[in-house]
């Protein structure tokens, strides 16, 4: 017990077990039985978001059999929805809660700014990151992989309202392409990244201001929602996914460029 490491481990283990017991006791029991467990989805699901019927407007469906607003059978081809995104998560992120997403983008921007500010200066003695020269395969394959990563990132951003994905995932893929370029010793124009990030941020604000001016609410949908399942549908979701993809890709790319410099 004299070893401070062992006593530290034992103390941590006791504390963690106590905390875990408290969490499980708070979550798990209500009158001695498990409170969580299998549930019916209908009792928990955010049905208004699924029906795309937040504002109370009845959707004008062209689907075959719909019996009522609570029993809507959505199918590709439905028109006149409040939000035409087939991906419901994407419709929440980029339309119903797009103000949250705006704050999320601001948080990411603040994190990247803090990363740039906190990076140690180049005057120091220690070379923290030692990078070797890239080998043949990495050096030759990096531009090809970069091109495919760019295309995939834009594709994921562009199809965020139809398939799993969206702006954040697409931006992460774009940043992966930049990471491969940095790893292979290539240069990337950081001014271009800054410009892209600025323009994308301003476009996000412009979309929000358009909703404010035309419809009365910040980031309200002003673009026609189109036909469910088509590529040019869902109004603001497609626009915001593209903008977020560009902005996140540029931000993470500039973060990778700053962190991957050899002088660190």
């Amino acid at each position: 017990m004299s070893n401070p490491r062992i006593s530290r481990y034992i103390f941590s283990l006791i504390l963690t077990v106590l905390l875990g017991y408290a969490v499980f006791a708070a979550l798990g029991t209500q009158g001695g039985t498990l409170r969580f467990g299998p549930h019916s989805p209908a009792s928990r699901i955010s049905g208004a978001m699924i029906e795309k019927n937040i504002e109370g407007a009845r959707p004008n469906l062209t689907a075959k059999n719909h019996t009522g607003p609570s029993n809507v059978n959505f199918a590709p081809g439905s028109k006149g929805l409040e939000n035409g995104a087939a991906n419901i998560v994407s419709s929440i992120v980029a339309d119903y809660r797009s103000f949250d997403t705006f704050g999320e983008v601001l948080v990411l921007f603040a994190a990247v700014t803090g990363f740039m500010l906190l990076l140690p200066d180049k005057k120091g003695k220690n070379k923290g990151v030692t990078s070797e020269a890239p080998n043949f395969v990495l050096a030759k394959a990096a531009p090809i992989v970069f091109a495919f990563a760019m295309i995939t990132g834009v594709y994921i951003s562009f199809n965020g309202h139809l398939t799993p994905g969206g702006g954040f995932a697409g931006g992460a893929v774009i940043a992966t392409g930049i990471l491969i370029l940095v790893l292979s010793g290539n240069e990337f124009n950081s001014q271009l990244l800054s410009l892209t990030e600025t323009i994308a941020g301003l476009l996000f604000l412009a979309v929000g201001a358009a909703g404010l001016v035309l419809k009365g609410n910040f980031l309200q949908n002003v673009i026609p929602t189109g036909v469910l399942g088509y590529i040019f549908s869902s109004g603001i979701v497609l626009a915001l996914n593209l903008i977020i993809g560009l902005k996140v890709g540029a931000e993470l790319g500039s973060l990778i460029l700053a962190g991957g410099k050899k002088e660190i």
């Binding site: 209908a42 955010s46 699924i50 809507v72």
Partner: peptide, 12 residues
């Protein structure tokens, strides 16, 4: 649709 999906809100 309303009873056939998992809840999308926690995922967002």
């Amino acid at each position: 649709a309303a009873v056939n999906f998992v809840d999308p809100l926690p995922q967002a």
